[in-house]
């Protein structure tokens, strides 16, 4: 069953460091931060400096929005009203395929999957999609499992 979120119960307030990120999701683009000096990438985008070289001259990198599930939780007891009808829903940390750097550092993002828990495992590939909300200025990224993989790991009760 698809996991449905009631976005009428959620207000997102962008700030000067994140406005361009939310502008991009409206155009169905998934951005991460990129340092103009050394090329390091990171998320979330409200971090205003590069943790590798301390530069504050920073820009954006448009990812393909594809990655691998690094970990996940299954929320059973909802806390935010927008998610009351969505439980149990899966929040995952996703390691992006196109943000791996030479020194081994990676960029991971988090998001809600459209899949329910039976379809989710650590190690599975997934991809971003975008959902309209009640606020025309805010488009929310979601993620869905996009294939299969070997050596996946699934939480067993």
């Amino acid at each position: 069953m698809p996991v449905t979120i009631d976005y009428s119960k959620l207000r997102i307030i962008p700030d000067p460091d994140t406005r361009e990120w939310w502008d991009a999701t409206r155009q169905h683009k998934y951005l991460v931060r990129r340092c103009n000096r050394c090329g390091h990438k990171w998320f979330p985008p409200n971090i205003p400096a590069c943790s590798k070289c301390m530069s504050m001259e920073i820009g954006w990198f448009e990812t393909a929005g594809k990655g691998v599930i690094h970990s996940y939780v299954v929320v059973v007891q909802p806390i935010v009203g927008a998610f009351v009808g969505a439980v149990p829903y899966v929040v995952a940390v996703i390691e992006l395929d196109d943000c791996k750097e030479e020194d081994g550092s990676v960029t991971r993002v988090a998001g809600v999957l459209t899949n329910d828990e039976t379809e989710v495992a650590i190690g599975l590939p997934c991809e971003v999609l975008f959902e309209a909300t009640n606020d025309p200025k805010i488009v929310m990224p979601r993620w869905r499992v996009s294939g299969s993989a070997e050596n996946t790991w699934k939480f067993s009760e």
């Binding site: 979120i5 959620l10 997102i12 962008p14 979330p44 929320v75 935010v80 988090a110 998001g111």
Partner: peptide, 10 residues
Amino acid sequence: QFNMGWGWTT
């Protein structure tokens, strides 16, 4: 902005 929107707050 980068956790409440995915129901990941507590």
